[in-house]
């Protein structure tokens, strides 16, 4: 357990929060700007992470080429998922996506010969031969680390460098979302969000736009999945647990579903809240065992979600008046 003042620890929290933030942007594009309730976004992370790992380890592809393939697979999966589900009513869609999230994790654990099974990507070459895929990533991070070293000296550890990379990517994603949303294409998405029938009545092919936004959102989520994989050196199905989707939803709701600037802020708040519970080492929490304390941690996260919905459903930067317009 780390101290509250450990920079490394907080840099690590920053890495994870940034990745969740990127995932939250994918949800923001789909929900905040197109009205889709996608509760299975983790599936896209898993697909791109696994595609990348498998291509590097089994097909000997370079890391960056494999990553591009991973993003492409995530995008294509958005279309594949959309075809049977988007014709459904919005509420059916929401519930089916919950299932999609779980099924992908489930397949990753069970298709051992393809994914390495429950042991994860380290098992891709079989039990005796620990597989690794992230050499090129490590190189890139150490290059960033040495640049950073010029600026901030010895504080520039690998974790800090990773955090810098993740947050730069987060800002790029934010800019992309911002550009898309205020373009005429994004205007159509928002029209669909506000009134699907009226959008169809103005000649917009609602189905096609939704497929596109599932694909684009899938690619953004895929990026989060890749970063997850890079950062942890080996991935296993539980790394892409369906609850991750809900953490990203928490960030989005905290930010305000249409507030692009709110997402980074909410990611930071979420990271502090989530990791902060680890420091409940004072009484009465100090009387609890570590298992009990981890149960308590998630209970507090849950309670925070409930309170947030109760007190500020529009999020930190959202606009309640606008949220209620109908």
């Amino acid at each position: 357990m780390s101290s509250v003042f450990n920079v490394q620890f907080w840099a690590y929290v920053g890495v994870i929060a940034g990745i969740y933030g990127i995932l939250a942007y994918s949800l923001q594009l789909q929900h905040g700007f197109c009205g889709l309730l996608n509760f299975g976004q983790v599936a896209f992370m898993a697909l791109s992470g696994y595609t990348m790992a498998i291509l590097v380890v089994k097909a000997g592809l370079g890391l960056w080429a494999a990553s591009a393939a991973g993003l492409a697979v995530a995008g294509v999966f958005g279309v594949l998922m959309g075809i049977p589900t988007l014709r459904l009513r919005a509420d059916y869609f929401a519930i089916v996506t919950i299932a999609v999230g779980e099924i992908v994790e489930y397949l990753a654990s069970n298709m051992t010969s393809l994914t390495g099974g429950a042991a994860g990507s380290i098992n891709l070459l079989g039990p005796q031969n620990a597989a690794s895929y992230d050499g090129a990533w490590q190189d890139a991070v150490s290059r960033v680390q040495s640049w950073l070293g010029h600026a901030i000296g010895s504080a520039a550890t690998a974790t800090v460098a990773t955090m810098a990379v993740v947050w730069v990517l987060l800002v790029l994603v934010a800019l992309a979302v911002w550009f898309l949303v205020r373009s005429p294409w994004g205007r159509v998405l928002q029209a669909i969000r506000d009134d699907e029938d009226a959008a169809a009545a103005t000649g917009k092919n609602v189905f096609r736009f939704k497929l596109q936004v599932l694909a684009v959102g899938g690619v953004i989520a895929g990026l989060a999945g890749l970063l997850f994989a890079f950062e942890s050196a080996t991935i296993s199905p539980t790394d892409y647990d369906p609850t991750i989707t809900f953490y990203a939803w928490t960030i989005l709701v905290l930010a305000g579903t249409t507030s692009i600037a709110g997402v980074p802020l909410a990611s930071v708040v979420f990271g502090i809240l989530f990791a902060g519970v680890l420091f409940f080492t004072f009484p009465p929490f100090s009387y609890l065992g570590s298992a009990d304390r981890s149960y308590l941690q998630l209970m507090i996260v849950g309670a925070a979600l409930i309170l947030l919905m109760r007190l500020r459903p529009q999020g930190l930067l959202g606009n309640r008046q606008e949220m209620l317009l109908g």
Binding site: Y295, G302, L305, I306
Partner: peptide
């Protein structure tokens, strides 16, 4: 009831249910 009074949307209700699910499951574990 308070959420209904505040005209909470499907998403707010769902997120609350997710929170409740976490609290319950961890509470039972606890």
């Amino acid at each position: 009831r308070p959420l209904r009074r505040a005209r909470a949307g499907v998403l707010s209700l769902f997120v609350t249910a997710v929170g409740l699910s976490l609290v319950l499951r961890q509470g039972i574990l606890f």
